[in-house]
Design a protein around this nucleic acid. Structure first.
Lengths: 299, 299
DNA sequence: TCGTGTGATAGCGATTTTCTATCGCCATTG
DNA sequence: CAATGGCGATAGAAAATCGCTATCACACGA
């Protein structure tokens, strides 16, 4: 029964019988039969088909909701029993917005010190992807913005606040300033994340609120790419202060990370976890770690 | 998987492999094998055995907790999908304290008018049995006292308040009074419910608070038995006002139901349902009905 | 010491599961 | 408009699992 529900979850993710089957480690006919069995047992069609996958019926959507919950609970049960016997072990799957990637270490390092048997998989994702993947049980927790866009059905634990700095070469026009305003920054050509990232949308909003039209000369979904461009000293960017610091950018003496003042431009970043009570032991330990570390990160 | 979890639930109820198997509609070896499979798959012993059932291990208790939840969710899912397709149908299992039995009709009648396809099974139970059976998914909802003894992991919906009357023959000593005090009642020989019933404990407490030692000449776990004794006119009892009224007791002219005054002796009776979000459609409709009817029962 | 009750085990037949191979449908495309 | 490719359903056989009957092993009481 539960494995059939997992078929349904995979189908919701992949929207494709073949790929869903592969994801479940079975062949396509097996998955087809599994779905059909559920439909027979409920006496209701769950999936709209017509020579290809065409989404779920209303009943299918409801079953999907229950499936997420039941499958999640079954996984949590297994994990908890295992932890009772063998201590905390297993793999914790995290998804993190690019600008917070450098902060993950402050969670994972003490976590690992406490629970050496736990392994990590960390994905770089957009904030919307993170929420989706939590819903679909593809990850155990995420690190993302808490305040701006609606979170949906997750629990949130505040972790730290992000403040922005202008990164410029030390011979650039604004390089000699101790601080700059958003209005001034809006005049500078910038390289930023792509617009599917919430960070970009936040920064663009802040720039636009000054009345100016920002000039984004380069965009990418990779912080590494932005970072490498800024490192040349020929590009300017806006980065969270902590990220710049943890990359050691300001120690090169070729670059300056200048605080941007003028309005409360700080965003809360936090852990988001599935809305399940109780949580799995691995996630529970992560939340505990976040609560321990968060006070150390306050400004 | 889910059916194995049901094996575990049955075992918790019956504390006996054979009876649990029978309750699940399988043979004892099948249930034994099912439990063993779970133990193998978890790598942990769940049940302490020694030529007979000796309770669950710590891990087993945790699994049991999850099993209650997962099995309950799976049932709720089935019910909801069925309701989506065929409208509200199925069997609603209720357990009710004896003194509230006569009030059940005020819920079931309008419920049935609204949802004719729903069938009812109503058990007469003590308040503690009700809470246990909700935990173990043996009933869908209960009707019991909300205030006095701790409820545990259930949701409660207040339904009505119970006030007590002294029932006596019209030629008995107190029969000519418009109202009596608890102190006066404590002097009368009474027939009441047995002490495993919360109603008895409540009334006994109220009597004792007057300083007197109550004289319980007859006790039973059946309201019908108490009722038939009181009907002879030779016995006195204490009953909730509504119960006396709905039994038509006071219309015989042989009996009088005299309000007992002196202290706030009223108990809230309410619906208790499993602490699950969302609830099953059948229970959800019952809660809606209770909320509709409750205002009509206020004094 | 024997009888009884309880749960585990063995062995076997029935059922279910899942695979491979293939079909039929539809959309795309040259 | 016919060929092609992708997608999901179906058929049939092999494999695995399930669940039963019968029986065993053990503990406890009479």
């Amino acid at each position: 029964m539960i494995d059939k529900l997992e078929f349904l979850l995979a189908l919701a993710r992949e929207k494709h019988f073949g790929r869903a089957a592969e994801a479940c480690g079975v062949t396509q006919p097996t998955l087809s039969a599994g779905v059909k069995q559920m439909e027979d047992s409920f006496g209701v069609l769950l999936v709209n088909r017509g020579s290809r996958f065409q989404g779920f019926t209303a009943e299918g959507e409801r079953v999907l909701d229950w499936a997420r919950r039941i499958v999640g609970d079954a996984q949590a049960m297994r994990q908890e029993v295992h932890a009772l016997k063998h201590g905390l072990a297993g793999r914790l799957r995290l998804a993190v917005i690019p600008t917070a990637l450098a902060m993950v270490e402050t969670l994972t390092s003490p976590y690992r010190a406490r629970h050496p048997a736990v392994q990590f998989t960390v994905f770089s994702r957009t904030s919307t992807e993170i929420l989706n993947e939590i819903e679909n049980l593809e990850i155990d927790a995420g690190l993302t913005y808490l305040d701006n866009e609606p979170l949906g059905r997750v629990n949130a634990i505040p972790f730290y606040r992000e403040r922005y700095r202008l990164l410029v070469a030390d011979d650039a026009p604004l390089a000699d300033r101790d601080e700059v305003t958003w209005a001034e920054v809006a005049q500078v050509p910038l390289c930023l994340l792509t617009p599917d990232m919430q960070n970009r949308r936040i920064i663009e909003r802040l720039l636009r609120e000054t009345g100016a039209e920002p000039n984004i000369t380069l965009e990418s979904d990779s912080m590494i790419l932005l970072y490498s461009h800024v490192r040349t000293g020929r590009w300017a960017s806006i980065m969270p202060a902590r990220l710049a610091a943890s990359l050691g950018l300001t120690e090169t003496n070729k670059l300056r990370a200048i605080p941007i003042v003028g309005q409360e431009a700080s965003q809360t970043i936090g852990l988001v976890i599935p809305l399940r009570e109780p949580m799995t032991p691995l996630v529970s330990a992560l939340v505990a770690e976040a609560r321990r570390v968060a006070p150390l990160l306050e400004d």
